[in-house]
Write a protein that binds this DNA or RNA. Structure first.
Lengths: 229, 229
DNA sequence: TAGTTAATGATAGTAATACTATTATTTTTG
DNA sequence: CAAAAATAATAGTATTACTATCATTAACTA
């Protein structure tokens, strides 16, 4: 439903995450495309540039000309994902007047099943979403987080939490924890997804719909409001 | 305040996480003690058994006689932490009759500042808490999570989420997302702590007290109840 | 107290990782 | 067609994550 509204959009990712823009060449796009499939297949720990080189029939050293290391590659990929989601969020909620409806719609965008977006043919958004669920935390749970944060590596995610926080504040200006609630929802939506897949006894959610219902109830009852379901 | 109520308690950790029980010898305890300080200093990625051996003036190969690898070592440490927290949780809430007060107390245990527990002299609980905040997710965000879950590596954490879920259900049996809310609170308390330390713009919490207030409000408003603050 | 066993230490070795550096070849483009 | 840019090939390094073997020390037991 999000597709084809605007053609030729490019998701802008912090330039420091790459040495050479992977969107600028065929090899770059192949690195991203098969990097996504390799990481989602074998997990970030076992993923190496050497293996990726082998898969795309290209040389390890060529990949290093695009990305400094696999950590930065992960930050590139997940930033792209959040940039893509942010784009959807803005597009979907922008025209909505009623602040409560807007907030509800935002939660929907965050929880609805990810679908392939044909605007970006070299990126498998469904596989990338799995990477975000399983690996995103690893991009910031490091000793370098403060330096990398200063360098702007997490800007898109932060902006997204900021937007969600603003929407919460717009609905209920008196609520004191809009930022915390926004970050809880962002992280919680990933975490609950992971639990559905691996620890179903720790969650009541069974699909995207019930996850949406749960988070909507969480947010709106925190704001002392009923939902509009 | 939790100290010395019962002497000689041993926190029981799944035996599969170690080759030889580190509590059973002096070397084992030194491995745990300095393992905690090394991981909290340099982070889990840069931590190696070789470095730990050097620090304790012992041989790398001797450490391998206690733990198969550093992943299992992390699971051992974090399981110990959750076991210790569970013990506090049960001890603190057990005698409380009023279910709402009990739940509130549980949230307090989860969010209150961690203090050294002299019952376990070789374990620095404050440093271990930092490890849980920064590294716990890495113990389950792996491709081996399902197998390890089957082998019971995450039992204590799951039991703890289960207990919290039960407390929520006891307060409001009609609430449909007690498990999800419990897991959100468990993970959320760690995540918000991390944000306080590294991404203060993404949270409204500034200390343990405000984190407690936030989570209490989150839980009790989800249950359509006012808090007892 | 000698003898056995268990625990720890020392040393060496392996395959893989995470790169860097250099040179060669191919492709692009002016 | 020549120069420049991009990619590939090859080699090399320090470190990691182990395993294996053998030596030494400590503990406990007959």
């Amino acid at each position: 439903m999000m597709k084809h509204i605007i053609k030729n959009v490019k998701i802008a990712v912090n330039e420091k995450t790459y040495v050479k823009d992977p969107e600028s060449s065929d090899l770059g796009k192949r690195i991203v495309e098969h990097g996504i499939s390799l990481i989602s297949e074998m997990g970030f720990e076992k993923f190496t540039f050497r293996k990726l080189g082998t898969r795309i029939g290209s040389n390890e050293s060529s990949i290093y000309r695009y990305f400094e290391n696999k950590h930065k590659f992960l930050i590139y990929l997940t930033s792209w994902y959040w940039g893509w989601k942010e784009y959807q969020l803005v597009l979907t909620t922008n025209s909505i007047q009623d602040e409560a409806v807007k907030l509800e719609k935002a939660l929907e965008v965050l929880t609805e099943p990810v679908e392939e977006d044909s605007s970006f043919s070299h990126i498998d958004e469904v596989a990338l979403y799995q990477i975000v669920i399983n690996e995103y935390s690893k991009s910031f749970l490091t000793k370098e987080v403060d330096r990398e944060n200063k360098e702007g590596y997490f800007e898109i995610y932060k902006r997204m939490v900021g937007r969600l926080g603003e929407m919460i504040r717009a609905v209920q200006p008196g609520y004191a924890y809009a930022g915390s609630l926004a970050s809880t929802v962002m992280e919680g939506s990933l975490y609950q997804h992971f639990l559905m897949d691996h620890f179903p006894s720790l969650t009541d959610c069974t699909d995207d719909r019930s996850l949406f219902d749960y988070l909507r109830h969480l947010v709106f009852s925190s704001l002392n409001l009923e939902t509009h379901g």
